[in-house]
Nucleic acid binder design. Sequence first.
DNA 1: TATGAATGAGTTTTCATTCAT
DNA 2: AATGAATGAAAACTCATTCAT
Lengths: 225, 225, 225, 225
Amino acid sequence: MKKALKAAPSDLNEAPTEARRKYDPEQTKRNILDVATQEFSAMGLAGARVDQIAERTNTTKRMLYYYFESKEGLYEAVLDKVYGDIRTLEQDLHIDELEPQEGMKKLVEFTFDYHDKHRDFVRLVTIENIHGAKYIEQLKSFKNRNASVIKTIEDLLERGVSAGVFRADVDAIDLHLMISALCFHRVSNRYTFGTAFGRDPSHPRLRARHREMIVDAVLRFVRKE
Amino acid sequence: MKKALKAAPSDLNEAPTEARRKYDPEQTKRNILDVATQEFSAMGLAGARVDQIAERTNTTKRMLYYYFESKEGLYEAVLDKVYGDIRTLEQDLHIDELEPQEGMKKLVEFTFDYHDKHRDFVRLVTIENIHGAKYIEQLKSFKNRNASVIKTIEDLLERGVSAGVFRADVDAIDLHLMISALCFHRVSNRYTFGTAFGRDPSHPRLRARHREMIVDAVLRFVRKE
Amino acid sequence: MKKALKAAPSDLNEAPTEARRKYDPEQTKRNILDVATQEFSAMGLAGARVDQIAERTNTTKRMLYYYFESKEGLYEAVLDKVYGDIRTLEQDLHIDELEPQEGMKKLVEFTFDYHDKHRDFVRLVTIENIHGAKYIEQLKSFKNRNASVIKTIEDLLERGVSAGVFRADVDAIDLHLMISALCFHRVSNRYTFGTAFGRDPSHPRLRARHREMIVDAVLRFVRKE
Amino acid sequence: MKKALKAAPSDLNEAPTEARRKYDPEQTKRNILDVATQEFSAMGLAGARVDQIAERTNTTKRMLYYYFESKEGLYEAVLDKVYGDIRTLEQDLHIDELEPQEGMKKLVEFTFDYHDKHRDFVRLVTIENIHGAKYIEQLKSFKNRNASVIKTIEDLLERGVSAGVFRADVDAIDLHLMISALCFHRVSNRYTFGTAFGRDPSHPRLRARHREMIVDAVLRFVRKE
DNA sequence: TATGAATGAGTTTTCATTCAT
DNA sequence: AATGAATGAAAACTCATTCAT
């Protein structure tokens, strides 16, 4: 049942920009949070071990409780951080400056790339769904950010309809669900997929093809005629 | 002391067609398996509790070990059962007898309905992916099933291309992934989706719309022109 | 802060009436309860250690949780038992068969003797008061039993007044409080008392004198003239 | 995260007669001591939390150790302070100037009022008894105080016997114990008492009646005939 | 075949205290 | 004199599994 998973040497773990100071609460917190992100996403909430998280940290288990109160508190902090990260990036796309079809393409590509690259995020969302989203519900940050994606899509659709290139009967939230599904699933279910078909969806060649395919599918779906 | 969720008296739990015999190993096993299916799919492998499963059973914890060896053994048995169940149904579609577009529509609708109805299945697949699909790998039922779906899709595509209605550059496995994604995601991620947008994807009205939308998207994707 | 208090070899601990059977839930429970009574009364709820209780038991810590759910659950069970014990004895006095003054004397003597002998009980009541009686409040057994003492006193007072030996303006509950105070305090506060005056109130000579004194004080208080 | 009881802004907490100076060791100490008094008396020695005390203080946990060495050191300081406080008041009674019965009445009333008003004191004595009075033993203030009460009672009894109003066979220490019991118990055990009988002994009406009752009981006890 | 009691090894959490600034 | 971060040791509690009947 135990599985000494090697810490994936991701970009997360340590940023030795300067000599590590002895007393640096911000760094301590970030360090704990980064390790916890990996552990929770790898093992789930129930499966993760506080001891294991602490061990991979530069501090002790005690600090984890000092800053985050409990295992669940830490898990919530991880969710918060991870959702904060995607929001930040999403803002920089400036999709409103693009022509509708181009904008839609860019949005889908961004969504694809983000999920493809941030597996931790995908896994954490999956895990949250196993818990009925009860932890995410408490994060106020959560609801706001989703509103902004929908706004972006609504704008695109509106402009596309006006320009005569998109059909008029597409609902923004439904479309968002569709895009999400296509980008999320191939990451979240890549193990069963790999086992079933002997194809690893994260292989570069497949990855590129899927990217095109999804953009294509979405554009065909919204396009007039 | 926690009583939590009383076993929903779903079609799963008990079928007292005949008077319950005193010692009925098969029934005991089935009973354990049904309860375990609910628990594992609700809580995950790490999150499920052997005590809780036993408590909701008509028998005792000891029997659980007697028949299934261990918690993991029980989990594997659950996976096996759930995959066995799905295969049965898929045979009755006779998609090969339908005209390509009709066949594709029917396949998508079947896939949609199946996921929509079998949430336990969807959750267990999700859970398996959290564990890197390591338990599912051993199940023969798993590989067989997937092979047959691909075969069906390949046939459809081929016939569609011949008939001049489908384009020629669609890969069957990719298409299967696309259909899966669209049908799976709205079930697997319905909690975070519901929290984010205040919409429950399992609401009848939304359900019907999604069904049409997905069929539409897939047909637009494969259609020539 | 730690104090390896020797288990007082009281009448509580083990009753080897018959050879100890390996599987005897009742005995296991009783054994845990007896040890817990000593520990909680010696150390308080916060001060008692589950490990320490378990160690002095014939079983393991796990059984303690198996039967009593939590440290607090065990503490409540101890309170319940201890209050049950006193009730049982109180029934056997048959004070209603005695002439008022005699009855009052017997009641006071019983109360005195009981407190004098059951220090665990006295300490536990003290400890409960430190917790604002919040644990005792949940015990249904608690309220009933107190009603019966008051009934006894009311009867005595009534009969005494009718017989012209007691004055009429004494409230039964107030009188009960008075008797309790006199019998309880010398046990509960015997350490500070001993330190203050170099006298141990549990010394046989003092004990006898206090007994007489308290009976005397109560009778003088209720007596007419 | 628990905020629990905000320090009741009782007479204890702060006396900002003059503008609060930046560094005022005496005030800091007093502030810590006052908060600690409340916490220890509310929770007991084992139950009180250093963190909680510190949080309710105007300063930090470190200062607590700076001034009082340890949790136990702080507890002892609290006991010392509380005992110091009581002595002051008792001098002003001038019981020796009163006629014996009057003096006895006044002494009982004072004792009653003091306990009724200083619940912290009562609780701390209770707590000390749970610890076998081991901390109080070291306090000089403690022994002195008790010696003086006994002296007062002895005087009263002597003068009463001489005057022919008190009986001759009453022991001063026993009488002190009796008075203490009656005044102490109704405060110390008021929670279990309240739960048992649905009567709060600290209610004004009950309080007044108990006061009279106790004076009455004591006078009846010492009175000749 | 079936059962309720029992358990060892872990897992989360708490607490008084000290360190670096 | 004062502070917030840090900590080791211990405490409460949980869990999958096995034993005796």
